[in-house]
Design a binder for these strands. Structure first.
Length: 357
DNA sequence: CGATTTTGACCTGCGC
DNA sequence: GCGCAGGTCAAAATCG
């Protein structure tokens, strides 16, 4: 089992009913899970407020303690269930990793069926972008683009390295080769998204402005084109498209390099805005910033020169976040879990109700 | 009313 | 040269 899971406060199912809430720092670790659990939080707070009041009678205290013990037992049960689920997930993840590794070894770079089309389009776009770059920025020899500091539930991140593995052209076409070399670095993110969520929004901490959408040939799902709107001169572009094979996977392709720091709004809360409207959910724009603290001293710029190993490490972190959110969503969507929770809480509320005596 | 999204038209590169 | 497909533009629509 993944030790990380058991260390996550928001995943330990430690509801702490009746106790001062350990509202600690898990916002930084598993914001999505915290957000999901927040659905039941108001009820908990209601209970807590009553519980923190001076206790009236000893029998009542005894009853509450008994109830607390019962809840604790239930909590332990749920924790065990979670451990089992996590173990199964770990096994599946191992299998998935093996499959990906095997696929990469055989395909030589194309580990995703959709990556063929992505790569194909990427090989076309630079030329058109080149003509633009001639007029816009005078040959920015900016460093290779960074994998953006993704703060969402990413499944996989691949730092494409526009210069690296895509330079396999041996047909001896100098012009083509030069074009390839001028190509901005491309990195891909594989993001797990709710299939019902029709919006092609990948919240990665940056502000994006959508400037186009296109249905591509080999994928019925439209591809959305985004531009970094935080800085007018930022050359970074992003393409987001659902995987043709798995509708729950969003493939985000980043091109270019941010020439600015990360916007102040952290992409921490990834409330699944699965309203399908895709309207007011500005692309990549976090709904609101929970902490008014100023932006960190431009971590993205620091990340720009990270090695691929770091990118992989970030991918691991993202996988964990993804797991956290997925589990939280699964739990909160489980009717039996909700029913049990509501039963326990309503019983407690009735017990503490002033109209009781 | 300004910012953002939508969407059809246009441009460009590539393969045949 | 032609057609196709991807990428971008820009006017209209929409939202806060």
């Amino acid at each position: 089992m993944d030790p990380w899971i058991s260390s996550q406060p928001s995943l330990s199912l430690d509801l702490c009913v009746g106790l001062p809430p350990p509202l600690s720092h898990h916002h930084h670790q598993a914001p999505a899970a915290a957000a999901a659990v927040a659905m039941v939080k108001p009820k908990l707070q209601l209970v807590e407020e009553n519980f923190l009041q001076p206790l009236k009678k000893d029998p009542e205290v005894a009853a509450l303690e008994a109830e607390l013990q019962r809840m604790s037992a239930e909590n332990r049960q749920l924790s065990e269930m979670l451990a089992t689920v996590a173990a199964k997930y770990d096994a599946l993840r191992g299998q998935f990793t093996d499959m990906v590794t095997a696929g990469a070894g055989a395909g030589g770079g194309g580990n995703n069926p959709s990556s063929a089309s992505e790569g194909g389009s990427a090989s076309v776009s630079p030329s058109s972008r080149k003509r633009k770059s001639e007029s816009l920025e005078g040959g920015s020899d900016s460093p290779p683009p960074p994998p953006p500091p993704a703060a969402q539930h990413h499944l996989h991140m691949i730092s494409g390295g526009g210069g690296g593995d895509q330079m396999e052209c041996t047909s001896g076409e100098p012009c083509k080769r030069i074009r390839e070399e001028c190509k901005p670095k491309i990195s891909k993110l594989y993001v797990h998204a709710d299939p019902s969520d029709l919006s092609l929004v990948v919240k990665d901490g940056y502000q994006w402005r959508k400037y186009g959408q296109k249905v591509t040939k080999d994928n019925p799902c439209p591809r959305a084109y985004f531009r970094c709107s935080f800085a007018p001169t930022c050359p970074v572009k992003k393409k987001v498209q659902r995987s043709a094979e798995d509708n729950t996977i969003l493939v985000a392709t980043y091109e270019g390099d941010h020439n600015h720091g990360q916007p102040p709004a952290p992409a921490q809360q990834q409330q699944p805005t699965s309203d399908g409207s895709g309207k007011s959910s500005a692309a990549g724009k976090p709904p609101h910033a929970p902490s008014p603290s100023p932006p960190a001293p431009t971590p993205p710029l620091a990340l720009h020169h990270q090695t691929e190993a770091v990118a992989v490490a970030a991918g691991e972190e993202l996988i964990r976040r993804n797991l956290a959110e997925h589990m939280a969503m699964t739990l909160t969507r489980d009717p039996s879990f909700k029913a049990a929770l509501v039963t326990a809480l309503s019983g407690r509320i009735l017990e503490l109700s002033p109209t009781k005596d």
